[in-house]
């Protein structure tokens, strides 16, 4: 009995730590104050109105969306064959290669961002936008490989062999039989990767430049100059969006088992 009371206490503390900040942000976004303060005084929706009217937020939102979509799709297209090879075949140096593939998820984002800037962007002198897109692709790649691998592992190899024995080439069998059955894994990979890209700060910090900024970077810049609840309002919008996307795909496809 005593044990379970302690357990409840720990659980409550955990939830307060996890969800508390979100609550603070959401509540403070409805404040009437011109300075972010908790608990807020009064109630208004003016910060939401302001968010929607700041041009920089709108343009960087589209930038984040486009970068996220492009990088996620590229990482998926590259990640699926790699995941397939890792799950289905045994080859020399597989463990090392797997480590290399997952390194962008292990190495701190700041390190990746700086190295990409110093040893890739400066050296090749590619446009900022291209650099941002490639950098995001690199950090998303381990996520797509891992999630797609998990769904491939759940898929019986015998089914593929059945298709081959019935006359499909291995490539045809992959498209006709494997892909349709790992759809929910692909969706899970897509969402996880997209959200990772959309929320990324450390890598984007190094790879954005004049005229090219993502939403999180723009928010950071904004906060350096203003300390009003606009950022709370914007954050609340993003939180609600993320929760809706995750919840609805989970309900439809049960994607959490791949993450």
């Amino acid at each position: 009995m005593k044990k379970s009371k302690l357990l409840i206490l720990i659980t409550v503390v955990m939830f307060v730590f996890l969800l508390g900040p979100f609550l603070v942000i959401i509540i403070s976004s409805f404040s009437n104050n011109a300075v972010m303060r908790f608990p807020p005084e009064g109630f208004s929706l003016k910060w939401y109105d302001k968010v929607l009217n700041i041009e920089m937020f709108r343009s960087t939102f589209w930038m984040s969306l486009k970068t996220g979509l492009a990088a996620t799709l590229t990482a998926l297209v590259l990640g699926v064959p790699v995941a397939y090879a890792n799950v289905r075949y045994r080859y020399r140096g597989k463990n090392i290669l797997e480590l290399v593939f997952s390194s962008p998820a292990i190495v701190p984002g700041l390190v990746i961002g700086f190295s990409l800037l110093r040893f890739f962007i400066y050296v090749t002198k590619i446009p900022v936008l291209t650099g941002l897109y490639l950098g995001h692709t690199a950090i998303l790649f381990p996520y797509t490989v891992r999630v797609v691998s998990a769904s491939l592992r759940n898929f019986d190899k015998g089914i593929e062999e059945a298709a081959v024995s019935l006359g499909s080439s291995p490539v045809h069998a992959f498209f006709a039989v494997v892909l349709p059955n790992i759809q929910s894994g692909l969706v899970a990979a897509f969402i996880l990767a997209f959200i990772t890209s959309f929320n990324n700060v450390p890598v984007s910090l190094f790879l954005t430049g004049p005229g090219v900024a993502t939403l999180p970077i723009q928010m950071l810049v904004y906060m350096e100059y203003y300390f009003d609840p606009t950022i709370s309002a914007l954050s609340s919008i993003l939180i609600v969006f993320t929760v809706i996307i995750i919840q609805s795909t989970e309900k439809l496809l049960g994607i959490s088992k791949y993450m």
Partner: peptide, 8 residues
């Protein structure tokens, strides 16, 4: 196959 391996 033992586990049928039908296309789900």
């Amino acid at each position: 196959f033992q586990n049928y391996a039908l296309f789900p």
